[in-house]
Write a protein that binds this DNA or RNA. Structure first.
Lengths: 344, 344
DNA sequence: GTGAAAGCGCTAACAA
DNA sequence: TTGTTAGCGCTTTCAC
């Protein structure tokens, strides 16, 4: 069933069918009804590829993520998909599994080519390479928006969570409570989010005139296992830290597991600050009374989606970039011990 | 950069460029090199949509899943993606979030239309509706393969995990160990997997002449919370079950949490059989000594992918359907108490 | 071996 | 308001 067949059956031209199907205004009710009847009867759907070719628009946005297991990515994706759908765009998901080759492959894939816009939440690729690789997209004026990855504003727009500031507020809180030896556990993947956290940690410590002991900075995967093992490692040191910052929710869970195993009570024997990666985590952390840095994945998803839509719908494209830095809110609960009080 | 531009620059016809780009054989080395040189220089990539239109093939498979948070779906997707890629197909992911409307929307979406084949791991839709909705795909001879969802073989191929058999082996093991009061906790979504498990449970109980107490059959979500709450509920009953079958890994974790909370030692005070949904779970369950029913998501993904590719590559399409039922292997560890022994 | 040309199904100027 | 027609970029017979 092509547009031609429909035109023939409805005894109109293909142009008219196209107008009716695309909801154009200037078609007489009579003709519209006749065409619609045939369309319904034949269950006709315009050929997507043909229309993409003719218009140069696909109405498709692709979201690139490392993997959707982490709640931050999962929720971001879910929210963005809904938001984009409301604006008439379909979303497709491309997972890179934290593999640089996959990331490169994506930008050469048919989907990157076909998409009207790309939202990428991946950050495994070297900046120079990435810039070279998205060059063709830029030439075609395709909006590419990066989440949690810095790029010069003339290359691509980007939105990052303020990891530096978040880390600062966490360290400040610990310092205020008398903690001078602070451990920190992170994963390895995602250049910006890792570097920024470490940078923020250093900056915060320095501005408080606290020495940074590199042995207190532990790296592994963004997993429960890493949280467990590295917590164990930190607390087995001759001079163990009095507080730990667990840089994502899995690592935080792992830390809790080890505390449990070691018979340590968080907020009493040991201090912990975690990271809520998505609103689904809130319940757990709040229940356990864990002080956290909170990411607003929903807001990031909504803003990113709206910005993308704005770029796509307006002609000329909107020039107001999305807010570039989301604050990481420090939610104070009860997992940080006040060492000052204990001493007095 | 279109094929025309390349042709002009290389001083050949578009047909020749097409042949070179698509790796056709009968092109002289001289010409091939000349064309390739221009292609490289201009970083030319054929327009995907145009080629889809001209050939009627997209080399794209879409995998439809409820959401990728569950390890079974995540791993299935990951493995299938790699397998399909090796065969020259790109994969796109479509998530339905367990929403029937989304499922319906998918089959009307451009992606369903464009895809060369569809692998669906969703099971929320009424059978009649589904059959009607995939009718257009069948007419176009597009292979649609369902995982964990029964459909008449003339409608679509399907592969299911043998939930009935799995449940039977679990109940049998418990019975052999003297358990007569068995609780079971499931989620609600996914018609086949839920119904089959309940059916299998009933069948197993009946064939052992054990009465089924419907209050022992608990349903909620496929989450840790459900596992926790329903375990609590079951064990607070006047006559609590002596063993619990937790029908997915999250529920199982939840059950373990409650045991822990209640000070019950699994394999001693209470018996539990869990479900390993993916190979990534194995470590945990094996570590904790939990007896499980094991799903082979990797094998299902590989088989499904190969079958799909077979259908797509061969002409006429292969008629050997994939194996229709995967056994759920019972991995006996130490979480089932032998009540007989205790009594003697 | 290579080129010319006819589509693939749809959209959008332009005409009427 | 409706129809005619020229593309969109590529593939693929069919000639040469």
């Amino acid at each position: 069933m092509t547009i031609k067949d429909i035109a023939k059956k409805a005894d109109v031209s293909v142009a008219t069918v196209s107008r009716v199907v695309n909801g154009y205004k200037w078609v007489s009710d009579d003709v519209r009804n006749r065409v619609m009847a045939v369309v319904e009867a034949e269950n006709y759907r315009p050929n997507y590829n043909a229309s993409v070719m003719a218009t140069g628009k696909s109405n498709m946005i692709v979201i690139v993520i490392p993997e959707s297991v982490s709640p931050f990515f999962a929720q971001f994706t879910s929210v963005a998909t809904k938001e984009l759908k409301a604006a008439g765009y379909v979303t497709m998901l491309y997972q890179t599994y934290n593999d640089e080759a996959e990331e490169i492959a994506f930008f050469g894939s048919p989907f990157a080519q076909m998409a009207d816009g790309i939202i990428s939440v991946t950050d495994g690729m070297d900046k120079e390479l990435l810039m070279k690789i998205i060059q063709p997209l830029r030439e075609k004026q395709k909006p590419v928006l990066f989440i949690d990855r810095y790029l010069p504003p003339d290359i691509a727009d980007c939105v990052v969570n303020d990891n530096i500031g978040g880390m600062k507020s966490a360290v400040d809180l610990l310092y205020k409570n008398g903690h001078h030896q602070i451990g920190i556990i992170l994963g390895r993947t995602g250049m910006t989010i890792v570097n920024d956290k470490i940078t923020g940690f250093h900056q915060a410590m320095e501005s408080l005139d606290l020495p940074v002991d590199n042995r207190y900075i532990r790296m592994g995967d963004w997993t429960v296992e890493t949280g467990y093992l590295e917590t164990q490692h930190l607390l087995s040191m001759p001079e163990p830290p009095t507080a730990i910052i667990a840089c994502n929710n899995f690592i935080c869970e792992g830390a809790l597991k080890w505390f449990d195993h070691a018979g340590l009570q968080v907020g009493k024997d040991i201090s912990l600050i975690g990271v809520e990666e998505s609103s689904t985590d809130t319940m757990l952390f709040s229940w356990l009374g864990i002080t956290t840095l909170k990411l607003d994945s929903e807001r990031a998803a909504i803003d990113a989606s709206r910005y993308m839509v704005g770029k796509l719908k307006h002609d000329p494209p909107q020039d107001t970039p999305p807010e570039t830095e989301y604050p990481m809110e420090l939610i104070v609960r009860k997992s940080v011990v006040n060492l000052n009080k204990n001493e007095s």
